[in-house]
Amino acid sequence: MLIMNDSSPESVASVLKVFGILEALSESKDIAISELSQKVMMPKSTAYRFLQTMKSLGYVNQEEDSDKYSLNLKLLDLGNRVLYHQNFLAIADLEMRKLRDKTKETIHLAVREGDQIIYVNKVASEQYSLCLTSKIGNQAAIHASGLGKVLLAWLDDESKKNLVNNIDFVRYTPKTITSKEAFLLELDDVKRCGYGKDDEESELGLRCFAVPIYNRLGNIIAALSLSTSIFRCNTAEEEAKLVSEISQSAAKISELIGFNKQSKSLD
Rank of each mutant, 00 (worst) to 15 (best):
N166Q: 13
R112H: 08
N80S: 10
T178G: 14
L266R: 13
I136Q: 09
G79E: 08
V150A: 00
K29P: 05
I213M: 05
G137R: 02
S159C: 04
F88W: 04
R216N: 14
Q248C: 14
W154S: 04
E35N: 09
L204I: 14
K68L: 10
K161P: 03
L36Q: 05
A240D: 11
S225R: 03
K160Y: 02
T53E: 15
G258E: 12
S56E: 06
Y48E: 10
N5A: 11
D189S: 11
A90V: 10
D6V: 02
G194D: 03
L16F: 14
S125D: 02
T176V: 04
S227Q: 05
R81N: 12
D30N: 12
L242A: 00
Q262N: 15
S134H: 02
N5W: 08
V120A: 04
A124M: 12
L94S: 11
V15S: 07
V170L: 12
L151N: 00
K261R: 15
T46M: 05
K161L: 14
E237M: 10
L163E: 10
M4I: 13
Y59N: 09
K102Y: 06
V120L: 08
V190H: 00
Q38I: 13
Y59A: 11
K122M: 11
L217T: 13
I31Y: 00
A251Y: 03
I220L: 01
N87D: 12
K241N: 14
I136E: 12
Y119T: 09
I167C: 07
K261P: 04
L89Y: 02
E63A: 15
R216D: 14
K29Y: 11
I253T: 00
K264C: 08
A222I: 08
V150P: 01
D199H: 07
E64M: 12
V190D: 03
K17S: 06
M4L: 15
K264Y: 15
I3N: 11
V150N: 00
S225H: 04
I21C: 07
K252P: 00
G114Y: 06
L155F: 05
K191P: 01
N61T: 10
D6G: 07
G196F: 00
K55S: 08
L75V: 13
N234L: 08
C193G: 05
R100F: 06
R49W: 00
S11Q: 13
D267A: 14
S125C: 09
L76T: 13
L2W: 03
Q262S: 14
L217K: 12
